[in-house]
Each structure stands twice: as C-alpha cells, then as structure tokens.
Design a protein around this nucleic acid. Structure first.
Length: 496
DNA sequence: CCTCCACAGGAAGCAGGGGTTA
DNA sequence: TAACCCCTGCTTCCTGTGGAGG
C-alpha cells in the first residue's frame, strides 16, 4: 500500500540509475569484497564495524523499549518459578523493535534459567517462513527432540557413572532411587530405548495429527516450561487458519510434565478478529504494544549504533537527524533508518568521500527504494512478470487507469508470443492483487456504473527501470514489439 | 426505481510434486 | 510397490455489487 518510490521515473542524472540497476542485477551476493576491491580499500575507510547496522544484528541494549521489556520480563519470570507464564501477544509495526526485544528477553530468560537450574526453554519460529500448521509443529517437534536426545545423553552419562561407582561400593546408591546396580542398568537401557524412539519428523509426508502427537510427546518428555515464540503470527493465521494456535493453546490441560506458553508477535493489530474466541482469549492474556519510534528516538538509536559502526568523525552533523526524519515518515521504522544510514555510508565509501553527508543520505533513500523494486520484480514468477509486462506496456502507451480486461487481453497476446501457458482471468486477477500488495502497481476497485465494475490499475514504479529488469528475464527478452497491437486496440479510444 | 455491465473475489476441487508408511 | 499425506498453483463455478443509463 505504501509505495513512495522516486517521485518520478525521470531523473536529472539518468546515469546513476543505470549504474544502480546493473549493480543489483549482477550482485547475487554482494558480501564483502575479496581482492577485486583493493582500490576501494585504499580510500580512508568510513566504517569501523558495519555489522551493527545490519538488520540481522541483535543489540544488547534497546533504547526506548525498557517499558515493554520489563513488561515481558514480569510476565515471563513465572517460568523461572516453575509456573506457567501467561501467553503474550506483542503488537507493533515493522521496525519497532518487537522481535529484537523479544529475542533479548528470551536470551536473558534462558541465561537465568541455566543459572538457577530451572528447566526453561524458548523456541523461536518465524511464521512467515514456516507458514503452515504442519511445518510449525514439525519444526517445534524436531527442536524438542534434539533437546531430549541431549538430555538423555546427559542422564545416561550420569547413570553410567553411578553404575560403575555402585559396582565398587553399594553405598553409592544410598541417596538414590535405586536399590541395585541392576536397576541402574535397567534405567540406562530404558533411556536408550526412549532415545531410539525419538524419531525426527520429516519435512513432509506425515499426517498432521501424527506430527502433533510427536511434538506433544517430545515436549512432555521432560519436566520444563517451554516458551514458544511465534513471530509474524498473523501470517500463519492468514494462510492456514487458527488450528495451530488452538492446538497449542489447549495443550497445557493435557501435558503431564511440562507447560507451554506462547508469545505471539504480530504486525497487524486486528488479526485476532479472525480467531476463534477461545483462542483469542487464551492467546491474548497479556498484550504488549510497541508504538512506532518518533524522530528523536530514532536519532538516539542511530547515535547508539553509529558510535560503533563508524570511524570517529565520519558522519557530518546533519546525517543522523536526516536519516531519522526520513524513517519517521515511514511509520517510525528503525530498520529503515539503519538501512538508510548504512547505505549512505556505503555510497560515501564508493565516492571515496571522507565523510558521509546529507547528499549521500538522500541518494541512499532513492537507492533503497529502487533496489527493493528491482529485486522484487526480478524475482517474480514468469506469469506475474507477464502480467506486469502487460500493464507496463499499456502504461507506456499512455493508457492510465487500466482495467483488468485490458490487461488480460494484452497478457494473452504476450503469452502467445513467447509460447507460455495462458492462465484464466480469475487467476490473473489474483496476480494483479499480488502485484498491488507488493507495491509495484496500484489497483483500486471502482464501479463505472453501466460499464461495470473493475480494477483501475496504475504502475507505481518507474517504467524504464521496470522494463529493463523485465527484459533481463531470458523468457521475456524475446518479446517482439507489442506496440501495433496495443495501438490497434486503443486507437481513437480517447484515453490519453 | 430497476437493470445490467464487467468484473471482484469466495468455495471447492484438481493435478502433480514434495514426501511418507506398509 | 501401492496407498497415503501435505502443499502449491491453478481452474471451474459461482454469487455479489456500485452506479450510469434507461
């Protein structure tokens, strides 16, 4: 829905766009250089440690999130007392520090649990990647199975020690539950049998209920509190309903040894609307909201990281405030702010500049958006590319507010041309909606009264760059010239 | 006020490709 | 091997609908 690309496809410095596009198309993996980049290294380096600006980096201090973190800790501390913590739902838009905070808290929790020897584990699952009930359960089951195996190994080691000790001297059994070395041996055998039975769940193939019971048994094998963290939980619900959550949330009543507690992390404030009321109330026992950062807070965060990320004095004064301001417009997205700062730094580095300045930040803002679009378009499946190509072609011929029928006609023509399968209009409608969600086109349903109800589609990315990327696809490269067809179709149509 | 256009978008179900178990 | 299972991308069939023109 948000697609504030560069204000206009035409730039004063057309060159920089070409360069950037080629970059993006080439670099499958643009990680740090080796040999080729000696030239660049010779300049005064700007970065001290770039890693801390990457999204994957988890800081050990999260400014302006103390309240939320303490909140979580207060709830989760129950786990350390061996009680079941309430389930938690965490809300907040992207880049508001939800995941980072949750991960931070769970690390602390596990650390403390080890210190006091309380059995407590946190499992993290990203539901955008693991997006079906089967996969969530399978992944959880396998994690717990791994742990159980390790647990069995430890116990067996202990028991074996005990066994040898007891053979020398029966007194070694005095304080234990065993009466004879034989019993110890039996226990060892039964543990090993257990381990034998712990079968990993395959990626696919099993019936779901079997995966569930495997997972159930795995959790219940040891006495413990299991905290299950489901990131992007709204994606899971959207794609495969609330069965998973229902199963997870009612597990506690059937578990004998262990307890589970769920932390759900969601971008969408309203996603609980789709849930079964029972799931909704159990999952939302506690709710924590992460509000967007404002520009000042963003500046703090950037300041914090830039101290370690950059060389002393590599940033001119207005850089941080500007990054913060840009990102604040984008619903206070800290990830975006850091991205901006890093990219600005990289651009400065490329220019062999000594300092990062305002211009680099502005340039970075454009580059990030373009890179994103190019990457999204490049990795589109062929059919979506064809649909996009159709839209783009129409747009190029001055047709605006394109409707689905028009797109479909051109699309059919294109498929013909390159000998691809022609999908139904129903399917193409869906593909258009997907493009809309990716922010590549803008599609609004409008009613034109007598003349029906349709989508009005507009391209919301620069035409030329899109075309370049589309034509880089080997299958679309040899599309001849569709112009005559388009013109024939819209001749004298008055759409201009 | 009613009609009827040109689709939107839900539901169901299929193919066929990933895998499993017996 | 056959008989299952699950997932994705797709088709078929369908009902719903805002408003210009009658």
């Amino acid at each position: 829905m948000t697609n504030n690309g560069p204000p206009d496809g035409r730039r004063t410095d057309g060159r920089s766009f070409e360069v950037d596009i080629d970059d993006v198309l080439d670099d499958e993996d643009e990680d740090d250089g080796d040999g080729l980049f000696d030239d660049l290294l010779s300049g005064e380096p700007i970065f001290e440690n770039k890693e801390v600006l990457r999204p994957s980096y988890t800081p050990h201090e999260l400014p302006h999130r103390n309240e939320q973190i303490n909140n979580m800790a207060t709830i989760l501390v129950a786990a350390l007392r061996g009680e079941t913590p309430s389930n938690i739902l965490i809300y907040g838009k992207t880049g508001t520090g939800k995941t980072a905070s949750a991960k931070f808290v769970s690390q602390e929790l596990e650390k403390t649990s080890r210190k006091y020897d309380v059995p407590c584990e946190v499992e993290y699952i990203n539901c955008e990647v693991t997006d079906t009930q089967y996969r969530v359960l399978a992944q959880l089951a396998n994690k717990f199975i791994d742990q159980n195996r390790a647990y069995v190994d430890e116990r067996v080691d202990e028991l074996e020690d005990l066994h040898t000790a007891a053979r020398d001297d029966r007194a070694a059994l005095d304080d234990t539950e065993f009466d004879s070395p034989r019993e110890v041996q039996n226990r060892i055998d039964s543990r090993l049998d257990d381990k034998e039975d712990m079968e990993e769940v395959p990626m696919t193939g099993w019936p779901t209920d079997r995966v569930y019971s495997t997972f159930f048994d795995a959790v219940d094998y040891v006495e413990r509190v299991a905290v299950i963290m489901l990131d992007e939980i709204d994606k899971l619900v959207e794609k495969s309903g609330d069965d998973t959550l229902y199963n997870l949330s009612r597990m506690n009543s059937e578990l004998d040894n262990s307890r589970v507690s769920i932390i759900g992390i969601s971008n969408d404030l309203k996603f609980t609307d789709f849930l079964d009321p029972r799931v909704k109330s159990s999952l939302g026992e506690e709710e924590i909201v992460f509000p967007p950062y404002d520009a000042n807070q963003l500046r703090d965060i950037l300041q914090h990281r830039s101290d370690t990320a950059f060389k002393e004095g590599a940033l001119s004064d207005d850089v941080l405030p500007l990054c913060a301001a840009f990102a604040a417009q984008e619903h206070g997205d800290a990830r975006r702010a850091l991205d901006l700062l890093r990219t600005a730094g990289e651009l400065a580095e490329r220019d062999q500049a000594d300092t990062v300045d305002e211009e680099h930040v502005r340039h970075a803002q454009d580059k990030i958006e373009l890179d994103r679009v190019v990457e999204v378009v490049r990795t589109l499946p062929t059919q979506s590319k064809l649909v996009l190509y159709a839209i783009m072609t129409l747009e190029k011929h001055g047709v605006h507010n394109i409707n689905t029928g028009e797109v479909y006609n051109i699309y059919k023509r294109l498929c013909d041309e390159i000998d691809a399968d022609v999908l139904t209009q129903r399917r193409v409608t869906d593909l258009i909606s997907e493009l809309d969600m990716l922010g590549i086109v803008n599609a609004v349903v409008v009613s034109k009264g007598r003349y029906g109800r349709t989508k009005e589609i507009n391209l919301s990315v620069p035409i030329e760059e899109t075309e370049t990327v589309l034509q880089a696809d080997s299958r679309l490269g040899d599309i001849e010239n569709v112009t005559p067809f388009v013109q024939a179709r819209f001749d004298g149509d008055g759409k201009d």
